[in-house]
Simulated scan of single mutants.
Amino acid sequence: MYNLANQLTLFRIILIPLLVIIFYLPFDWRFPVCATLFTIAGITDWADGYIARKYQLSTPFGAFLDPVADKLMVAVALGLLIELHGSIWFTLPATVIICREIVISALREWMAEIGARGTVAVSMVGKIKTTLQIVAIVVLLAFDPAKYDLMEKLGLIALYVAAVLTLWSMIVYLRAAWPSFKQGADNSSSE
């Protein structure tokens, strides 16, 4: 249970309160440090998956905890940025991303329960979305928006593109799951 892959996942969860604490410090260096912490979390996300696959260290605990750690880190970072930016133009794409993560997590849980988890496996659109989302969050965390207007705009553009890809990937997942939804509805109506 406590193999290297799972330890990296737990480390990512430990980074979350550290990110929050540093984010609220009254120093300018908090911005690049928060971006660095989020980047480290992204690297450990890649590393724990790679290590688990390469060395056959996958465990049910890791399979549960890894996506939870990812969603928590993204949701907390976006929540901090929503407060920092205090704008509907920032809150809208951030909320879309957070809500999609909740919907897809619930969908995957349900699909696993009915034995069809492979139906909602990660797609290429999902991988591109995740990469762009990480880049957007890192850029937005790295620079004080009061001092770096251009970087804020670039980060916001990346966040909007990530939000569009987020909706697109959600549609892909829901389409893949639709036959299971339909079958479940047909079974319940025949009872």
Results as ranks from 00 to 15, higher is better:
1 M>D: 12
1 M>C: 01
2 Y>D: 14
4 L>V: 11
6 N>F: 01
7 Q>W: 07
10 L>N: 00
11 F>A: 13
11 F>C: 11
12 R>C: 03
14 I>P: 04
14 I>L: 11
17 P>T: 10
20 V>Q: 02
21 I>S: 05
22 I>C: 04
22 I>H: 01
23 F>L: 04
29 W>Q: 06
29 W>E: 10
32 P>M: 00
32 P>F: 02
35 A>W: 04
36 T>H: 02
37 L>V: 04
38 F>N: 09
38 F>C: 02
41 A>V: 03
42 G>L: 01
43 I>A: 03
43 I>G: 02
44 T>M: 01
45 D>Y: 05
46 W>S: 09
47 A>E: 06
48 D>P: 14
50 Y>V: 07
50 Y>I: 00
51 I>G: 07
53 R>D: 11
53 R>V: 06
56 Q>N: 15
57 L>W: 06
58 S>N: 15
59 T>G: 12
59 T>Y: 03
59 T>V: 09
61 F>P: 11
61 F>N: 02
63 A>S: 08
64 F>W: 08
67 P>W: 02
68 V>S: 07
68 V>Q: 05
70 D>Q: 03
70 D>F: 05
70 D>G: 03
75 A>Q: 02
75 A>P: 12
76 V>Y: 07
83 E>I: 11
83 E>G: 12
84 L>V: 01
85 H>N: 15
87 S>G: 04
87 S>Q: 08
87 S>E: 04
88 I>F: 04
91 T>L: 13
93 P>E: 06
94 A>P: 09
94 A>S: 13
95 T>Q: 15
98 I>E: 13
99 C>M: 14
100 R>T: 08
101 E>N: 01
103 V>C: 13
104 I>H: 09
105 S>G: 12
106 A>N: 14
106 A>P: 12
106 A>S: 15
110 W>V: 09
111 M>A: 01
111 M>I: 00
111 M>L: 01
115 G>S: 03
116 A>S: 05
116 A>P: 11
119 T>L: 05
119 T>K: 09
120 V>K: 06
121 A>K: 13
121 A>M: 05
121 A>Y: 02
122 V>T: 15
123 S>F: 00
123 S>D: 09
126 G>A: 13
128 I>H: 03
128 I>A: 14
129 K>V: 14
134 I>C: 14
135 V>G: 14
137 I>T: 13
137 I>M: 07
137 I>D: 13
138 V>H: 04
141 L>M: 00
144 D>W: 04
146 A>N: 10
146 A>L: 03
146 A>I: 02
146 A>Y: 00
147 K>H: 11
147 K>M: 06
149 D>F: 11
149 D>W: 13
150 L>P: 08
150 L>T: 13
151 M>F: 06
152 E>V: 13
153 K>W: 14
154 L>S: 09
154 L>H: 05
154 L>Y: 10
155 G>Q: 00
155 G>F: 00
157 I>P: 08
157 I>Q: 08
158 A>S: 15
158 A>D: 11
160 Y>L: 10
161 V>H: 07
162 A>R: 01
163 A>Y: 07
167 L>Q: 11
168 W>N: 08
169 S>L: 07
169 S>K: 01
169 S>G: 12
169 S>T: 15
172 V>C: 02
174 L>H: 12
176 A>R: 07
178 W>E: 07
178 W>L: 12
179 P>V: 05
180 S>D: 06
180 S>N: 05
185 A>F: 08
185 A>Y: 05
185 A>D: 05
186 D>I: 02
187 N>G: 07
187 N>F: 00
187 N>P: 10
190 S>Y: 00
